[in-house]
Design a binder for these strands. Structure first.
Lengths: 221, 221
DNA sequence: CGGCATCCATTTTGATACTG
DNA sequence: CAGTATCAAAATGGATGCCG
């Protein structure tokens, strides 16, 4: 497998030796929001063959970036989680994401897949620590049949797969509407009024959500 | 060429569609320190065939991340420079670099190549804006037959290829010694005493250099 | 030197069929 | 559902030759 190396004594090159192959950083992106099962990863990584997925997971495991665990009962099914080293790739993935949001996004193409987790993780990318100074709030997002939550505390935002313990506010919507939000075509307030987004819990908190992000305007290359 | 896409409406995936192929991010790393000629790039990217290098440059050009320019007289030779969009990949490259410095560096392997520019760019990665608040200083580094400079101003460090206009201090050393520094085996002060590094110009400024960086201790995966 | 084209051996990938 | 096995297609690398 991966014996192909750049052979450079350079931190960037050494990193890319480990995670620079096709699919690997996207696989890590998936795991950044929490442990996932093989099948879930497969669904999120359309086009990646099962053989390659298995090989990449094995590689990450061997290199100490991920570990194969068994979900606690009653699930008891195997799952993959990032190690501390793997999780620390988060800032690099988010940096790539910030660049893409500014220089490469635009409209969703016809055949592009979309998973709400990507948008939720994107919240971390544009989180504005100053705007959220001293704030402590938990949001739950239900999009289609997926559930995520975002916890804002100590000037950081943590986005994770799965329900929150005690969400302050719960926002419910569809995949398609979420795409419209990330495309910037609709504002959250507008969508709540129109009924495309349902809010329950602390409505004040929900309204404050969009004040925690600062995203530069998209630019063209 | 590159019509292979992840087909995901996700900023990270879109970015990797553009720069995720083999060599591309390392090519951008080379250009981050300033325009380079074809041959220089080739020397820094040992193992990359000329055909592939040409193809990647064309790709970056087509996508608006780099542009083919002609160096000002008397050089008058073609060179490649990053556009604004390309240069803004700097933070992502540095994020990968920071991860690698912590989790993947260790000793230099027997067959690994090394170019001083990588170490100089690495200074940007661990630059500590707080430590350099209000500081304005320019360093020139002469390593082997390469010259770089680093300009600290307005709380940022800019590392570039080529000589500085008016360096406050000039540090001169060899490739091998620079490797020892980046490996953390030797401190700068020690090397100056031993004569392995020569300082000219403002020696006070030179001594302050290492106070501008904050690098976490390496960890093992 | 700069840069492209061509040929070829080796890897990597993508897609699908298959097994426990 | 988790993962292996298999095979065709594509990407890579290395060498080499060419041309301005």
């Amino acid at each position: 497998m991966d014996q192909r190396t750049y052979n450079q004594y350079c931190a960037t090159a050494r990193t890319l030796d480990l995670v620079g192959e096709r699919w690997t950083l996207l696989l890590i992106r998936e795991l950044l929001t929490g442990p996932k099962r093989f099948g879930d990863l497969q669904k999120s990584l359309r086009g990646m063959g099962t053989g390659l997925l298995a090989a990449r997971l094995k590689h990450l495991e061997r290199e100490g970036l991920a570990s194969r665990t068994t979900l606690p009962p009653p699930a008891r099914t195997p799952a993959y989680a990032l190690t501390e080293a793997g999780a620390e790739l988060g800032p690099a993935v988010l940096a790539l994401s910030r660049w893409g949001a500014k220089w490469a996004m635009g409209e969703r193409r016809e055949d592009e897949s979309f998973h709400p987790g990507w948008a939720v993780l994107g919240m971390e990318a544009f989180f504005d620590a100053d705007a959220a100074k001293g704030v402590r709030v938990v949001y739950e997002f239900r999009v289609g049949d997926e559930v995520f939550h975002a916890r804002i505390a100590d000037g950081t935002l943590t986005a994770r797969h799965g329900p929150a313990q005690e969400p302050d506010a719960v926002l419910e919507t569809s995949d398609d509407v979420l795409v419209e939000v990330t495309e910037g075509r609709r504002t959250l307030a507008e969508l709540v009024r129109s009924g495309a987004v349902t809010v329950s819990g602390d409505k004040q908190a929900a309204r404050r959500l969009c004040t925690f992000f600062r995203k530069p305007p998209p630019a063209t290359r």
